[in-house]
Design a protein around this nucleic acid. Structure first.
Length: 447
RNA sequence: GACCCUAUCGUCUAGUGGUUAGGACACCACCCUUUCACGGUGGCGGCCGGGGUUCGAAUCCCCGUAGGGUCGCCA
């Protein structure tokens, strides 16, 4: 029997990073086994479920590169979809739920109570055999001992989560339910429901949760809880995917940077850990830097141009070769794209602000004649290229009897406004003689 | 309160009875580079506690403790 897994988010307006990982694990399992990955939208909460909220989910999955074999094609609940087990929006499946409720009612497995419909839950402990957690014997809690039955249809006619979730998994032929461990206790209810329908439940695999850095539960409000944060802050989807998969899963051989094809080949449920993991932003940053460094040039340019555009810098005003040359000096030096405008903005904007502490130290009266001398030499340089620029600076330093750093630091500050940035000689070459000398002059005027 | 899950460096993890407890991120030092980043070398740092079982426990069992989850006419 072919594997069928699903990701069934509720469109609340954002995609939780934990949800993204759940989707990833499901997707990887489907791809690993040659099965189907199904996307189902649990939009029963009509009050807050909007089409825009569905787009957040669809776009988030697309950004991560998690394509679904069955599910909606657009965020329109009544719109087109892929697959023969639709509709894939719960809001469009009311008659299916209705039929299932009636079936339970007619067989005496559910009953009406205060206008709602309650399911007759088993009084016995439920045994589960989880692919990750193992054997679990779920006893009734004290509250459940008083009344184990639970509502499956509210008095307003709306079926509840536990019910629709099970009915859909059943109708859609889901074979493996891979979801967060927060659902482990509820699984007893779900298993009982499957049995009431005379079908054997799917296999369950409960994955550990992602916690905040301090070990507390990661909720919507917490920094970094939304996938959008990583999109906005210039992370690469491949880095996010790689980082996420390592939270609760291990390839067991000390390797950490793994490509998607490698992940698909190696991912499996038995290697999923049982304990929760804390989110470590520093490690994600490191990993993002690793991916940034190996990005193909064209994609790097494209991402950089977008990043500048979002920061209000239109790089299209500059000749393409200039833009590319400028970006080439940044390649491999950034951990995230969001650092780019601050790192290389000087290529596209005038430098009006200088690092205060550095200016105090470098823009001094005694440095003025030194910089003036270097300016003269640079002005007369036949070729304004990195190699001669470096050689010249060094010979001027020697002539002046100072270390190269004495000239390097003020020049960098004058041309970029910062103390850190691309290789000095290469950035001067890209900037060109005219701009470089103008910036030197502006700095000299301040000394 | 009840029920369920979990527990190795600060963090992510390897480890399934015998290892000097390994790797990665972070941190520190040095090298490379007169910026930053990368890279290289070295360092710091861990089996939650207590009982068992065993010739021998990070590994198995029990009890604590701690963290997380669930007990809704939320999903």
């Amino acid at each position: 029997m072919s594997v069928r897994v699903r990701f069934a988010p509720s469109p609340t307006g954002f995609l939780h990073i934990g949800g993204a990982r759940t989707a990833l694990f499901n997707w990887l399992y489907a791809r690993h086994t040659g099965g189907q990955f199904i996307l189902r939208i649990e939009d029963t909460d009509t009050a807050r479920n909007t089409q825009a909220a569905v787009d957040v989910i669809l776009n988030g999955l697309r950004w991560l590169g998690l394509d679904w074999d069955e599910g909606p094609l657009t965020s329109d609940a009544t719109g087109p979809s892929h697959g023969g087990r639709g509709p894939y929006f719960q809001s469009q499946r009311k008659d299916i739920y209705q039929r299932r409720v009636e079936a339970l009612l007619s067989r005496g497995l559910a009953y009406e109570h205060d206008g709602a419909v309650k399911f007759k839950m088993t009084r016995e402990p439920v045994l589960m055999d989880d692919l990750i957690v193992g054997h679990v014997r779920r006893e009734l809690t004290d509250r459940e001992a008083v009344d184990p039955d639970f509502v499956i249809v509210r008095s307003d006619g709306q079926p509840v989560f536990h019910f629709v979730n099970v009915v859909d998994d059943l109708e859609m032929g889901i074979t493996h339910v891979i979801r967060g461990e927060d659902h482990l206790s509820n699984t007893a209810k779900h298993i009982a429901l499957f049995r009431a329908f005379d079908v054997s439940p799917p296999k369950y695999a409960h994955i550990p949760l992602i916690l905040n850095a301090d070990g507390s539960k990661m909720s919507k409000r917490d920094q970094g809880a939304s996938l959008a944060t990583y999109v906005d802050e210039g992370y690469l989807p491949e880095a996010v995917v790689n980082y996420l998969v390592l939270l609760g899963w291990s390839p067991k051989d000390n390797r950490e940077i793994l490509s998607i094809p490698e992940l698909i080949e190696r991912f499996d449920l038995p290697q999923v850990l049982r304990h929760n993991a804390r989110f470590d932003m520093a490690k994600l940053q490191w990993m993002n830097g690793e991916y940034m460094r190996t990005l193909p040039d064209d994609r790097f340019y494209e991402l950089c141009v977008h990043t500048f555009a979002r920061a209000g810098v239109d790089t299209n005003r500059f000749p393409l070769p200039y833009v590319k040359a400028a970006l080439d000096t940044c390649k491999g030096k950034l951990k995230t794209l969001s650092e780019l405008p601050g790192y290389a903005g000087f290529y596209f904007n005038e430098v009006t602000q200088f690092d205060a502490a550095a200016a105090q130290k470098d823009f001094t009266p005694e440095n003025k004649p030194r910089l003036q001398r270097l300016r003269e030499v640079y002005a007369a340089l036949p070729e304004f290229n990195a190699a001669p620029l470096e050689a010249c600076l060094k010979s001027v330093a020697a002539e002046l009897g100072v270390k190269a750093g004495v000239l390097v630091h003020p020049v960098r500050l004058a041309c970029t406004g910062k103390t850190a940035g691309p290789s000095l000689y290469h950035l001067l070459e890209v900037l060109g003689r005219e701009k470089s000398l103008a910036r030197l002059d502006a700095a000299l005027a301040r000394m």
